[in-house]
Nucleic acid binder design. Sequence first.
DNA 1: GCCTTGATTACGTCTGATTTATGGGCCTAG
DNA 2: CTAGGCCCATAAATCAGACGTAATCAAGGC
Lengths: 249, 249
Amino acid sequence: MLYGMDTHPPAPPTGAASRLHARVLDELGVAICGGGFAPGTVLYVDELVERCAVSRSVVREVLRVLASMGLVEARRRVGTRIRPPADWNVFDPQVIRWRLASDERLVQLRSLTELRAAVEPQAALLAARRASAADAAELVALAAKLWAAAESGDEPGFLSADIEFHRRVLLHSGNEMFAGLRELVAESLTGRHHYHLMPHHPDQRALTLHADVAQAIQRRDGERARTAMTALTQQIHDEMKDGWEPSGG
Amino acid sequence: MLYGMDTHPPAPPTGAASRLHARVLDELGVAICGGGFAPGTVLYVDELVERCAVSRSVVREVLRVLASMGLVEARRRVGTRIRPPADWNVFDPQVIRWRLASDERLVQLRSLTELRAAVEPQAALLAARRASAADAAELVALAAKLWAAAESGDEPGFLSADIEFHRRVLLHSGNEMFAGLRELVAESLTGRHHYHLMPHHPDQRALTLHADVAQAIQRRDGERARTAMTALTQQIHDEMKDGWEPSGG
DNA sequence: GCCTTGATTACGTCTGATTTATGGGCCTAG
DNA sequence: CTAGGCCCATAAATCAGACGTAATCAAGGC
């Protein structure tokens, strides 16, 4: 009488898919952000109940969440329509992940990189004013750890230290919205690494600039922190530009 | 109590689908973002069913949406816990609106203003490279309209032209994430106006800078567009600083 | 003292019925 | 033939109740 009596559960206990909601949400999110449905396409609850083999409650809750992300819009008597990409909440972490998994990943990475170039210098400036002494000291230590990881060729250690460094600058900017971008920067760096848009042996100049940012923040020199971070994000931007401008525009 | 009258709600304005879902979502969102529940507080579905006088489906769908915003986290056998503000999706338009309606509105406005100061100059730079000729021309026209509205003392016209100007610069930056901030800038300007943090007779220098930005974008002078927009956002920041630093820090 | 085990609990999922509002067809009036 | 209002089929919105599931906590055994 219950679900799946005759059809064995598709996900054994090993899978994290024990959450139907998460599974269907991810399935639909990937499909929409990946262009699987053209804007204006209409979905129906009953249709999704069949296609995803889950109950109406699961489908409805998923559609509510997608609607709150701006991906779909439910209308009585019509159905649930796919909204155009311009209406999506492009700052929602899930949407960013789905887009990074789609064909548009380079566009998404470019957007993230340009956003970082705008935000991180300002965050460094504010961190120089607002970070506590202990937090500033930890930033210097992180820059040193980054340096060491690069010298010893420890790639995973380098990536995680790099992520942590930028996360903390954003966090200590004292601005909740800058801080809200910290997971996004982590996604960006991971994505850059995953798609091999990163130089394999870290640039010496980048290491120097990380150290400069940390030192300037500790010495409360906001302008220098901003300048160094600008140079850093500019270098990142230049390194990645080849990825989306293959012909060198 | 909340809506005052027991008569029909004054406006079922746009056919915004559900009544109950939107009502309960807003009620809980305002309560959480307004500090009505301390982080760690546990909510229960059955309790909310009683308190809000709606069915389980409505409550569950609302909690799913709140969870996707990072405001709550459901755990089996425990209940649904309020998450700390650091975990909230502070870029979700709903969360921003709830925070602007709370006691933290000045903190939220400061964050928005600092974010604008970081993003809009870069957006102006990119718009100078990427905006179409027609879009650039419309920007110049909007700056002129802004000027005219200021001269004739048309406050509502000034506000709407101001919002539209900044929206379009973000939109024509060619970066989807910058463009995604356009509604947020609208909220920021509206909030600034609503809480009287805006000079009543617009500053002459601000008008000049708007015109400069538009002209620089039309002439494809990215650096000048960025410089002018930096001056503009800096001036906005200075004007509002009195609001959150009353004693002149 | 640590691990196992079982009862308890609140979320998660499923199902069926009912209500609501809305887009389009149809009809009437100008 | 067009404009405006009424009717109805439709799909979402809501309600109500049941059962499954996993995580917690405490009792009991090693």
